[in-house]
């Protein structure tokens, strides 16, 4: 397996881009939050947060699981298998776990997506014209519901083909056309809180809702982030540098995903 190495400062352990992404995403989560997690990096990040700074964080899976603790080395293949239910507090029908979003019990939804645009809209449905698509992707699943009803964190590799000026299809709404357009569409709550990548942590301008660099990953410049983005980012004058992954975080992550299914 080829290892996709990021370039850490000289005095830290080496880590992969996926590990960096996972660890950065875990740090955005706060103790006591209720978090809708997906599979792969989002689940690893939520579990890592539980084992570091957020022991009271509750995970929800859209398969209908409230508060599980995932067994290291036994990551579930989707959010709908029995591995998701390990040490759960409660199992409910899918519709009811999704309705927790609508009722307002969920602090954070954790998402990926094939494409994201300058307003944080996500596409996981079609590449190209939806009537004659170049690629039919798997679709929304619960993504649209999570993005419509809760604040979301998007964790994704930072590539120009993913960060596009306008998504081919809005599967999961971010800030739609910016400004107050999201609320005007009937979505008064939620929105994209943070986009976490292997190059930067990004937020959104409070008024225009345009994507902005909030912090740079260690060893990365703002120019590099801009060069890997298909639209103009808002770049403040002083952009802080994020802390590199610690040895403790890396060790926990190795233990959770020993086969490196998601953190290669």
């Amino acid at each position: 397996m080829t290892t996709d190495l990021a370039t850490p400062p000289a005095d830290t352990k080496p880590y992969t881009k996926s590990q960096l992404l996972t660890i950065s995403a875990s740090r955005v989560l706060e103790d006591g939050q209720i978090v809708f997690a997906g599979i792969g990096i989002t689940l690893l990040a939520a579990t890592l947060a539980q084992r570091t700074h957020a022991p009271g964080l509750t995970i929800l899976f859209e398969g209908g699981v409230i508060g599980p603790f995932i067994q290291p080395g036994e990551l579930p293949p989707s959010t709908n298998e029995q591995r998701c239910t390990r040490r759960a507090n409660m199992l409910v029908p899918i519709t009811d776990v999704l309705l927790l979003l609508q009722r307002g019990y969920v602090d954070i939804g954790f998402m990926g997506g094939a494409q994201i645009d300058r307003y944080g809209n996500l596409n996981s449905s079609y590449i190209g014209d939806p009537d004659m698509p170049k690629t039919r992707l798997p679709g929304t699943g619960g993504g649209n519901d999570i993005a419509s009803l809760a604040e979301i964190i998007v964790a994704t590799k930072h590539e120009k083909r993913r960060f596009v000026e306008k998504v081919d299809f809005v599967t999961s709404p971010g800030f739609i056309d910016g400004g107050d357009s999201r609320a005007r569409c009937g979505l008064p709550y939620g929105g994209v809180k943070k986009v976490v990548t292997d190059l930067a942590l990004l937020g959104f301008d409070p008024d225009t809702k345009l994507m902005r660099i909030d912090a740079l990953q260690p060893g990365v410049t703002a120019e590099e982030v801009q060069d890997n983005t298909g639209f103009d980012l808002v770049i403040p004058d002083d952009v802080p540098i994020a802390e590199a992954p610690t040895a403790t975080e890396l060790a926990i992550l190795e233990n959770l995903d020993p086969e490196r299914l998601y953190t290669h």
Binding site: N144, V170, T171, I176, C185, G186, L187
Partner: peptide, 10 residues
């Protein structure tokens, strides 16, 4: 009635 899917191309 529901509060999701609005504003999306779905």
């Amino acid at each position: 009635p529901a509060r999701s899917m609005m504003g999306s191309n779905v």
